[in-house]
């Protein structure tokens, strides 16, 4: 792709999210979402092979449908209430429709079916953009609008996403699909707590972005898209394989790592709100996700996979890929738990 075109697309990606973040008017928020969708389409299809094109087409159709639903709902809202404010959504009809449109945009179950299919067709860096940057703008709108949404819908969406994200990931051998289901499960955790403590949603989103960036960048450096490939990484780059294990466990939410922080705080908040059943279900669904992360760890570090070369150490050359983003995201993924009070302060 021409670097000037790439510059236009990248800056428009930034512009779209910034517009949605800074707008209090539905039309402008919708425009930001549309700019985001448009700008990522050529990036997704830049390989021009049929699988990428199929993923792009699916993504475009889904996002266009969700954006049209947002536009219709906000117009209906303006018709009923006479105002275009993002925060005020009086009436259950509009707030419910808006919640479902935004859920379709970020891929919450049961509107999640497009996400694994789309992510599987992309290369890892575009997949990284799709599962981090593209979640920001819809999540900003969700945080602003859900204060008037029916709690039953939010709880159902949250539990369904966490459950289905964990459950569907069990059967996968393709890493991008596993990461897609992990994204769905994490989104469920963010939605379940949004009405009780929106700042915990922000924390969960922030930590998820760093953790999934670490996972995607690790896979990029290892150039692995299947579990099969992962099993042969330990002789090739042992340090990265060891660290990748910790990254996966952090995504799964095990205690000394960053991933434990959002789950801990969210469970604590749910318990404080006197919702022990919801908290228990969420904790149990996290185990489902943990299973496939553990399987990745097991394949990466604890098995000696049958391979054509039977000597353990390989000849290793220094990687030519830029490793600074990987270093930063991996550090954040592994070591933020002791800073929990400071991070809580950041969002309040």
């Amino acid at each position: 792709m021409n670097p000037y075109v790439l510059m236009i697309l990248m800056s428009s990606l930034g512009l779209g999210t910034t517009l949605t973040f800074s707008s209090s008017h539905w039309i402008l928020a919708w425009m930001g979402l549309e700019i985001n969708t448009l700008a990522i389409v050529p990036l997704m299809a830049q390989q021009h092979h049929p699988r990428a094109v199929e993923a792009t087409t699916k993504y475009f159709l889904i996002q266009a449908a969700a954006a049209a639903m947002i536009l219709f709902t906000s117009t209906t809202n303006a018709w009923i209430s006479g105002q275009w404010d993002v925060t005020g959504m009086p009436g259950p009809a509009t707030s419910t429709a808006m919640m479902f449109a935004l859920a379709l945009k970020i891929g919450l179950a049961p509107m999640h079916f497009w996400l694994p299919e789309v992510l599987q067709g992309l290369d890892l860096l575009t997949g990284l953009i799709l599962s981090t940057w593209q979640k920001l703008a819809p999540m900003a709108l969700i945080i602003q609008t859900t204060q008037t949404t029916d709690p039953l819908i939010l709880t159902s969406l949250g539990i369904a996403s966490s459950l289905i994200g964990g459950w569907s990931g069990l059967n996968q051998t393709q890493l991008r699909k596993i990461l897609a289901y992990s994204s769905i499960a994490h989104m469920g955790w963010m939605i379940i707590v949004i009405q009780y403590a929106p700042q915990l949603t922000l924390i969960a989103l922030g930590t998820y972005i760093f953790m999934t960036s670490a996972a995607f960048l690790t896979l990029k450096v290892l150039s692995a898209t299947k579990i099969n490939t992962l099993t042969t990484t330990w002789p090739k780059s042992p340090i990265l394989a060891a660290i990748a294990t910790l990254v996966m466990l952090s995504l799964g939410g095990l205690p000394p790592l960053t991933g434990f922080m959002p789950k801990w705080l969210i469970l604590q908040e749910l318990t404080k709100q006197d919702l022990p059943a919801t908290a228990t279900i969420m904790a149990l669904t996290a185990l489902l996700s943990l299973f496939f992360y553990l399987r990745l760890c097991h394949a990466m570090t604890l098995t000696t996979s049958p391979n054509t070369i039977n000597s353990a150490p390989h000849w290793r050359v220094q990687t030519t890929q830029n490793s600074l983003p990987l270093t930063i995201s991996v550090t954040v993924t592994m070591g933020l738990l002791p800073l929990t009070p400071a991070i809580l302060m950041l969002t309040t």
Binding site: I8, L9, E34, I35, L38, P42, A45, H48, V53, T56
Partner: peptide
């Protein structure tokens, strides 16, 4: 946005043999 859409369309449909929708 209109300019962006122009670039998006050109980028997605460029090329004779590997035009996106025909793939």
């Amino acid at each position: 946005v209109l300019l962006l859409t122009l670039f998006v369309v050109l980028e997605v449909t460029r090329g004779l043999s590997y035009g996106v929708l025909r793939a």
